[in-house]
Design a protein around this nucleic acid. Structure first.
Lengths: 254, 254
DNA sequence: AAGTGGTCTAGACCACATT
DNA sequence: ATGTGGTCTAGACCACTTG
C-alpha cells in the first residue's frame, strides 16, 4: 500500500488547486520519491532496488509509470539498469569517474586515472572565491587539500580542493585516497551528482611551475570545478592546473 | 501501408537468422527510417513531421513505437517536439548554436555570439592533420577559412577552419556568414549533428598574438574541433585560439 | 472544436541473467 | 524454471495550441 501523498490522487475529479498551479506528471512525483530515498541513504550505492513490479504496487501506480521514473534516473547516472539482473544505485567506481568526471585524456587517446601525491592538508576560513563557489557564509571554514597528480610518475596536474568543513567533518585528519568521491559517499553519505567546470589558459607562477617540474610562465589549463551533491548543493571546489603538452581536455558536444 | 522492410515482421514466429545475429528493437528500426529521411533531406530543417498517428499507420507499427523513436531523436537534438503543435526538424539557429556548440562564455556569465571578421579564404591540399581529422585521402583538397571573432569589437578568438572541398564545392568563392552551420544546411544539405573538442593551453606565436592584439607568448586556449554530420562523417576541422582573460570555456559534467 | 504531443494504464511477450 | 528489465500494443484521457 502507498504511504505517499501523490497529487491529483483522484484523477477523474475536477482540476484542483495543485493542478492550476502547474501540472506535475505522476512519474515525476514518483521520481521525487526515489530521489528522496537516494538522498536519505535508504537506497545506498551498489545496492539493488526492489523490482519495478514491487515498486509499482508499493506506491500504487502502474509499472509503466515506475519505469519512466527509473529511466530518467538512469539517464542522469544516478541508477544503473541491467536487463535480467535488476536496477542498482550507481557507485563512484574508477570507471565512472574516468568517463563522467575526468576529462583530461592522454594524446594517444588512452584514458588513464592519475596517481595522487598529497602535498598538504589545512583548514581555514573560506576566502571570497570559496564562499561564492560553495555558497558559504562569512566565517565558514573549509578544508584545503593540495595534491600533485601524475601519469606514470610524470606530474601533470597540480590540484587544490576546498571542501566545506561542516559537510566533511574530520576529513582533514584522515588519509586522503586517490578516489575522493567514493570516500564522500562511503563516509559522509554525500553523492556527487554532477559538476560544472570553467576552463582558462594561464601562465604558471614560479611556485606552481616548480611543483610541476616546468619553467615559470609555462602555459597551463586551469580548470575550476564546482561539484554538486544529489540535492543540488555545491560541496567541492577544485582548481586544477594541467600541463597539456601530452594530454588534452576532451569535450563532446551533442 | 508500409513500404519498409522491418525485421521480425512476423513476430509470433520462431527466431530467424536476423534475430540470432543480435536483436534490434522495432523502435530502432523505425528510428533508422527517420534518420534516413533527415539525411536524404526528405524532412528538411524547420519543417513539421507528420503526426505520430500518421507515421504509425504509414509504417505499420503502434503509435507508442513511433513515439519512442521520435523521443530518441529529440534527445539527440535532431528533432524538436512541441506539445499541441507537432514535431519539427531542428534548425541551426543562433540559439541552438549558442547553447550546443559555443562553449566560450564571458566571465560575467552572459552568453554572447561573437561577430566574425574573415581574414582570408584559400584552397589547398590537405595536410596530414587535416587528412587525419577529416578522414581524407592523400591529395584531397580543402577550403581554409581564417577569421577573427570578437565580443563587442574586442578580438577574442582566432579561428582557422578546414573544410573538405568535395563536401562544400564553391564555398571558397561565396560570402562567409557568421553562422556557418546554417549555411551548410541550407546550401549543401549538410547537418552538423555533433562535435568533439580537444582543448590545450598554448603560448601564442608572434603572428597569432599580433592578430589578437596581445603580446607574443600570451597563454591561450586552443580548441581543436571536429564536427560530424548526421551520417557520422567528419566535415569540419576548426582550430580556435581563444583569449581567456575575460571569458572561459564552460563544460557541464552530468 | 479539432488536432497535436504527453501521460497513464493493463497486459502480453521477449531478451537476459541466475538458479 | 524463475525473475528481472526491455519491447510492443491498444486504448483512454490530459495539456497545449490553433482556428
Amino acid at each position: 500500500m502507498s504511504v505517499h501523498k501523490l497529487e491529483n490522487a483522484d484523477r477523474t475529479s475536477v482540476p484542483d488547486a495543485a493542478e492550476t498551479l502547474g501540472f506535475r506528471p505522476l512519474y515525476r512525483q514518483v521520481k521525487a520519491i526515489f530521489v528522496r530515498r537516494l538522498v536519505d541513504g535508504v537506497w545506498s550505492p551498489g545496492t539493488a532496488l526492489p523490482s519495478e513490479a514491487q515498486l509499482a504496487s508499493e506506491i500504487g501506480v502502474s509499472q509503466g509509470t515506475v519505469r519512466k521514473a527509473l529511466d530518467e534516473l538512469a539517464a542522469e547516472n544516478l541508477l544503473v539498469r541491467r536487463q535480467g539482473r535488476g536496477t542498482f544505485v550507481a557507485e563512484h567506481d574508477e570507471r565512472r569517474i574516468l568517463f563522467q568526471f575526468f576529462k583530461l585524456v592522454h594524446d594517444d587517446g588512452e584514458r588513464r586515472f592519475p596517481d595522487s601525491l598529497v602535498l598538504g592538508v589545512e583548514t581555514g576560513m573560506a576566502n571570497a572565491a570559496e564562499r561564492a563557489a560553495l555558497d558559504l557564509d562569512a566565517g565558514a571554514s573549509v578544508i584545503r587539500i593540495r595534491r600533485l597528480r601524475a601519469f606514470e610518475t610524470i606530474p601533470i596536474i597540480l590540484e587544490t580542493l576546498s571542501l566545506p568543513q561542516r559537510v566533511f567533518p574530520g576529513l582533514e585528519t584522515a588519509p586522503i585516497p586517490n578516489n575522493l568521491y567514493s570516500l564522500f559517499a562511503a563516509r559522509y553519505g554525500v553523492t556527487i551528482a554532477h559538476a560544472r567546470e570553467r576552463l582558462k589558459a594561464i601562465a604558471l607562477s614560479a611556485d606552481e611551475a616548480g611543483l610541476l617540474g616546468v619553467a615559470q610562465g609555462t602555459p597551463a589549463l586551469r580548470i575550476d570545478r564546482v561539484a554538486l551533491s544529489l540535492d543540488g548543493s555545491p560541496v567541492e571546489l577544485r582548481v586544477s592546473l594541467c600541463l597539456t603538452e601530452e594530454a588534452h581536455y576532451l569535450s563532446d558536444l551533442r
